[in-house]
Amino acid sequence: MELTAPVNKIIPFSLVDGPGSRCSVFLQGCNIACAYCHNPETQNLCLGCGLCVDQCPAGALSRRDGHVRWDKDACVQCDTCIHVCPHKASPKIERLTPDEVFEIVHSYQPFIRGITVSGGECMLHPEWMRALFALCRKAGLGTLIDSNGCVPFTQHDELLDVTDGVMLDVKAWDDEVFRHLTGHGNDTVKENLAHLARRDKIEELRIVVVPGWNDPEATIMGIADVLGDKVRTTTLKLIKFRHFGVVGELAGSPSPSDEHMAELEGLARTSGFEDVQIR
């Protein structure tokens, strides 16, 4: 069968997914479920329950052979289907081959310097990404992965060979804290951190600071410990939790204070980070 991945959307331009002007490709489906997920509708693949079909005001959805079909041209992008979906999924997904996605991103040259594949969790499709990145590299496009680090990169060194870098989200350091936040343990994240550092493939590290939900102090110090000397050249982004788009327990939760963020920045700098950015 032809290699495809479920593509949620392709954004021709992103300011925030790596250096310079980039095209971002979002894949559908995630292997963890963060309490603060800002795109909960990207977590799961459609089960074909059809609950959304009747609700669609544009008649863009239909049910056939146990699957929900999406008529892209009829869709008015009102997102009603996403709002009514009880499974944190979306029917507006296209299964595309690496060639098909490459054709789209290639059409954005020379305005972009590269692509960033994100999710969901894009590392659920490593072979697909490897094929896409190989095509991008040949065309002079940069290649970045945006990952939660819960799939072992150690098993995908060939993908890393065609990847410029990984933007790794290190959500929490203590395993229990991580589990509470995501429903998943974080041994793999720590292994990935060490492996990516060894291979010089860390584009940036991120910590979303969620008051009462994670342990950014321990995370900063833990990362610094793993990175060793490389801490000085690694970019660390400390991101304030914002409740927009979040559903469930954390919807409406407060953001951390500026003072708290400044303290964390100070801790990061004393831990050896030289490039610390607060977002």
Binding site: L15, V16, S21, R22, Q109, F111, I112, R113
Partner: peptide, 16 residues
Amino acid sequence: TAANNLDALLDVVKGA
């Protein structure tokens, strides 16, 4: 917010 990513603006000028 493009002010936070001047390289992106530069890419636009170069591409154009």
